[in-house]
Design a protein around this nucleic acid. Structure first.
Lengths: 198, 198
DNA sequence: ACAACATGCAACATTTATGTTGCATGTTAC
DNA sequence: GTAACATGCAACATAAATGTTGCATGTTGT
């Protein structure tokens, strides 16, 4: 599950324990980022010493969590083919994919880039793909020509973040939310005409 | 400056110290929410013991900071007359006012409502004013009739948050940003027509 | 079955932040 | 000027989280 922190293959039960710890860490830390290792261990149903056996430090645990989520994040964006699919299609697909990951891994994905160069690279790569996609959307006439792309990207990130908040893992829910995000990003919530800057 | 935590009036120099501590706390905590009292004291140019003399605990310091920012937040919204001014005018005015406060008090305003009932009441009051304003905007035809007001409010908050991020205290900067927020909220960044849900 | 691995538990060591006190040295208000 | 107030400094006390170790008891793979 993590090539860097475990050199030797783990036994099956230990592998399950690692997963349980990471999942518990996500749950506990998302509701309280300052939670102790004790609380995480309790939520995972293991002793605190077990956590310390699997992760050399609290920081290493959080880093592993971040790395795990980052890989899924990167995959979510890349699999939307943002460089080749039609901009609107890619935008929708990427949104839905990212939402699927972000609902349930909110804490891990909210971490600001840590030291790990792999994680930093993945984040930068996602950022680049996003910028290129927005550039293509602009050229395709999906975005208004006067749009500040940096601002557009930040708005997009923020909308995804908002849409990922409410907990309810219903089936088609993600598609509904993705539609809402893309729709809001492109059209806003106002009626046509009569506005400030136009 | 804070009626609750200081019963007796402070001497002039002590009052200055309190301000310096609060301002330093904002600076330090906004870049590192887990910063120690030591770091805050250092940034304020005082000894750590002085901080503990003025605030009974670290929590009390953060609470005072939150209360201070909350009062400004409430004032920023109320002074925009969201219940009486034309919706678009009030929306713009409130946005600009809140941005002015939030740039420079980002940490204090990001705190989730603490125990203090006054703070909780102020936040709830602002929320109500915002909802009523959006309701009026809907009835006035500023928002699309099918708009989910809860979603609209969350988007609005998120846009303000984003617009308040970049540090640069230029003069008319705030008006520019407020325009961007309102414009994005109402129109989004897309070109007219040809979108997913319409 | 058996050897290697994994966990729980208890105990310990270490570190770090928090909060307190006494005292000497300025500052302020009147 | 003087008495009350404020600060810096050093020292201390406390508490809480982190990280480690040894040992007994299970569990897994072959």
């Amino acid at each position: 599950m993590d090539q860097k922190s475990q050199q030797r293959p783990l036994r099956a039960d230990a592998e399950r324990t690692v997963r349980a710890i990471l999942e518990a860490a996500e749950r506990v830390l998302s509701s309280n980022p300052a939670a102790t290792v004790e609380q995480i261990a309790e939520a995972a149903g293991v002793a605190r010493t077990t956590v310390h056996r699997r992760f050399t430090s609290r920081e290493a645990l959080v880093d592993a969590l971040t790395a795990w989520a980052t890989r899924q994040f990167h995959e979510a964006v890349t699999s939307a083919h943002p460089d080749t699919a039609p901009p609107l299609v890619a935008l929708y697909q990427a949104t839905a994919n990212v939402l699927r990951v972000k609902i349930g891994w909110g804490f891990a994905m909210s971490r600001t880039t840590p030291e790990d160069p792999d994680v930093a690279r993945a984040h930068a790569d996602v950022l680049d793909q996003c910028d290129r996609l927005f550039q293509r959307a602009l050229e395709a006439g999906v975005l208004r020509p006067d749009t500040d792309l940096a601002w557009a990207r930040r708005v997009y990130y923020a909308l995804i973040h908002e849409a990922a908040q409410n907990r309810s893992d219903e089936a088609g829910d993600v598609d509904e939310r993705a539609t809402l995000v893309v729709d809001t990003l492109l059209r806003g919530v106002g009626r046509q005409g009569s506005f400030l800057s136009s």
